[in-house]
């Protein structure tokens, strides 16, 4: 019965609560701004970290799925020596095929990925062709890739051997680091945001203490007294979250377009669902920070 009464109370009071929320935000505009900005910063970092990690994972996957090993031939080898080396490797167990990408081809491909200048690429990259000849070795079985790569590494004709797993391992190690650092930075800003919101709410509680005293005296329920403050915190968090979602969304869009037109070989995640989830997540994150901030400042007072 009391519950029902409270519902009716809330409905009758929505105007009051809305008015008080606006008023209290006007009361400390700078503090409100600071709260919004910290919420925003923490969520922007969070948003970009998520996109970065999604891309790293995506990249790792696309490399992982390849059976190919890139073997770079000593730069001073003549084309004949390269051919010999190629057929030698083709004989090795576990090798399905070997294809040669000559330094000239590599340069040409690089020129294509850059898109732009049609002129002389060699002069563009500094006079000499920096690319080595590359043998792309395809393994018969993904299980063999590692063993094959290490036996190729001991071949004196090759100066560098690259394979997917190698890169993937490094990438994963890096993303692990990034995850922790990102988590730390987001957490630090998140805590700051919660603290600022709670200071904000506390100041408004303080400036309205007379009103609160009278509200209690005439029998306003605690939830009624709390609502405007709770909504204030939520609103601050939500505004910060909205800005963050817009910044992350526009920024990521811009980066994707840029990367795709200049570094076309990089796979970029463009997932509508992920996009929507991250935006919603940022809004929600903002609201959670706001609610936490309010609750921290409200739990102490308003008992009797």
């Amino acid at each position: 019965m009391k519950k029902k009464g409270d519902m009716a109370t809330m409905l009758n009071s929505s105007g009051y609560i809305f008015r008080e929320t606006i008023n209290s935000m006007k009361r400390n505009p700078w503090l409100s701004l600071a709260s919004v900005v910290t919420v925003m910063v923490s969520l922007v970092i969070l948003g970009y970290s998520i996109f970065f990690l999604a891309n790293a994972a995506n990249m790792a996957k696309s490399f992982e799925s390849e059976l190919e090993i890139g073997a770079f031939v000593q730069i001073e080898y003549t084309p004949e020596e390269v051919q010999d080396l190629k057929s030698q490797i083709e004989q090795m167990p576990g090798v399905e095929s070997v294809t040669l990408v000559t330094k000239e081809q590599a340069l040409e491909d690089f020129g294509k990925t850059l898109g732009g200048s049609q002129g002389n690429i060699v002069s563009d990259v500094g006079g000499t062709n920096p690319f080595p000849d590359k043998l792309t070795v395809k393994a018969t079985d993904p299980q063999n890739v590692k063993a094959l790569a290490s036996s190729l590494e001991s071949n004196p004709g090759l100066y560098k051997v690259r394979y997917g797993q190698d890169f993937v391992d490094q990438l994963l190690k890096f993303t692990q680091w990034l995850r922790w650092i990102g988590f730390g930075v987001v957490a630090a800003f998140g805590v700051a945001a919660v603290v600022l919101i709670s200071i904000n709410v506390k100041m408004n509680v303080f400036s309205r203490r007379r009103e609160i005293q009278i509200m209690k005296l005439v029998g306003a329920s605690n939830s009624f007294i709390r609502w405007p403050f709770l909504i204030e915190g939520l609103a601050l968090g939500l505004v910060g979250g909205t800005f963050a979602a817009v910044i992350v969304g526009l920024g990521y869009n811009w980066i994707t377009v840029y990367v795709q037109s200049t570094l076309t070989f990089l796979p970029v995640v463009q997932n509508e669902v992920l996009f929507r989830q991250v935006s919603m997540g940022l809004l929600l994150g903002g609201m959670v920070m706001g609610a936490l901030g309010s609750l921290f400042s409200l739990q102490k007072f308003l008992r009797a």
Partner: peptide, 8 residues
């Protein structure tokens, strides 16, 4: 105020 804050 006394009525407003009790939801009348």
């Amino acid at each position: 105020f006394a009525l407003e804050v009790i939801g009348v």
